Amino acid sequence: MAWVRVSDTFNEAPEWMRAYELAAERGDDRLVSELKGAASALFTHSAQQWTDYKITYGAAVRHIGISRVEPVLQDLITIGIITEVESEGERQFVLVERESFVHVIRSDAKSKATKRRNDQNRAGLQVPVMLRDGDQCRYCGDEVVWGDKKSDRGREYDHRDIDAPTTPDNYVTACRGCNQLRHELGERAEEELPLLDPPESPMYGPELRKKLSRWEGFVARWCKKEGLPNPLIADEVEAQDNPAASRAVTPSQEEKTVRATSPAAGPSQEPGKPQFPNTDSHGQVESEGRAAKGSSRQPAETIQVNVVQSLPALPAHHAGGAPQGRKASHVRDAGPAKGAEPFARRRRRRRRN
Rank of each mutant, 00 (worst) to 15 (best):
R259D: 05
A260R: 12
T261H: 10
T261R: 11
T261Q: 12
S262Q: 03
P263E: 05
P263K: 08
P263W: 12
P263I: 07
A264E: 06
A264H: 03
A265D: 11
A265F: 07
G266S: 12
G266Y: 07
P267E: 07
P267F: 07
P267M: 11
Q269I: 12
Q269R: 15
Q269Y: 08
Q269M: 11
E270C: 11
E270K: 12
E270H: 12
P271S: 05
G272P: 03
G272F: 07
K273R: 15
K273D: 14
P274K: 10
Q275S: 12
Q275I: 09
F276C: 10
F276D: 04
P277W: 11
P277M: 13
P277G: 08
P277V: 13
N278V: 00
N278M: 01
N278P: 09
T279N: 13
T279V: 14
T279S: 15
D280Y: 10
D280Q: 14
S281E: 01
S281C: 12
S281V: 13
S281H: 11
H282Y: 09
G283Y: 11
G283K: 15
G283A: 15
Q284R: 07
Q284G: 02
V285M: 13
E286W: 06
E286A: 01
E286T: 02
S287P: 03
S287Y: 01
E288D: 05
G289I: 04
G289M: 10
G289F: 05
G289T: 02
R290S: 04
R290I: 02
A291L: 00
A291E: 03
A291Y: 03
A292F: 01
A292M: 03
A292K: 11
A292T: 04
K293S: 02
K293V: 01
G294V: 08
